[in-house]
């Protein structure tokens, strides 16, 4: 069986993916991030995620985006959990009950994907901008569960302030899109700038919560 250039290229990239997966998993095991038993799962998932995204790209190169966006976030979601919640819980930064978290996360992930599907017929570029904005909001309840219910990272006042700020960010994006008619390149730059304050405040609050639990901060006030 002879392989064409595309097949050859894909085989090379599959080998590279396998290399990164093996090397990364080796480091995870050697530094006690995961157990040896979990290693095959991580390697298998990593290869599966790569293969799925390649198959989607072959069938939908660049456009149309919705099948890719809908499926990719579902396939990528374990990565998000591992790199954030798992790390937080395993290093004892926060505590959660896994079952309510997984159920809540899966539910709101489904909500965001259905939202995106329902909005699939919107004209370009709104097809990319609006669903992203709307679907992003589906993640809020789970984070509120993690930060305010399961752990008291935020006081209610701080949580409301951050939520209000996100509303403003969302409104500014809508105004830029519909009122000002700005191109997406500018909208995305402004969005990125507007992420700085809430991200930095969130990082500081999580850090203070963590240090307070470790006994570094005596005060319970934020």
């Amino acid at each position: 069986m002879s392989m064409g250039p595309v097949e050859t290229g894909l085989m090379i990239y599959a080998a590279v993916t396998l290399y990164w997966s093996l090397l990364g998993t080796y480091m995870l095991v050697k530094t006690d991030v995961i157990s040896v038993k979990a290693a095959p799962i991580i390697i298998g998932y990593s290869l599966f995620a790569w293969l799925t995204s390649r198959i989607m790209y072959i069938n939908f190169p660049e456009i149309p985006p919705h099948p890719i966006l809908i499926l990719s976030r579902v396939v990528d979601s374990p990565q998000g959990i591992l790199t954030t919640i798992y790390v937080y819980v395993r290093t004892k930064v926060i505590k959660i009950k896994w079952m309510p978290y997984i159920i809540g996360y899966s539910f709101f992930l489904a909500v965001s994907r259905i939202t995106m599907y329902l909005l699939r017929d919107l004209p370009v570029p709104e097809i990319l901008v609006l669903p992203t904005l709307l679907a992003g909001w589906a993640g809020y309840p789970v984070w509120f569960y993690v930060y305010t219910k399961a752990n008291r990272v935020f006081t209610p006042k701080a949580a409301y302030a951050l939520a209000s700020y996100q509303v403003i960010v969302w409104a500014v994006s809508i105004i830029m899109l519909y009122q000002l008619g700005l191109p997406y390149s500018i909208i995305s730059s402004v969005q990125m700038l507007m992420e700085y304050p809430s991200t930095i405040v969130t990082l500081i609050l999580v850090d203070r919560y963590r240090l307070r639990n470790l006994g570094v901060y005596a005060s319970d006030e934020l």
């Binding site: 993916t17 995870l28 991030v33 991580i42 990593s46 790569w50 390649r54 790199t83 954030t84």
Partner: peptide, 17 residues
């Protein structure tokens, strides 16, 4: 866009931890 290798997310996972 097809030529993207996977697996590097594991390193992000590792050093975040």
């Amino acid at each position: 866009g097809l030529w993207v290798a996977g697996g590097t997310w594991i390193f992000t996972f590792a050093y975040m931890y």
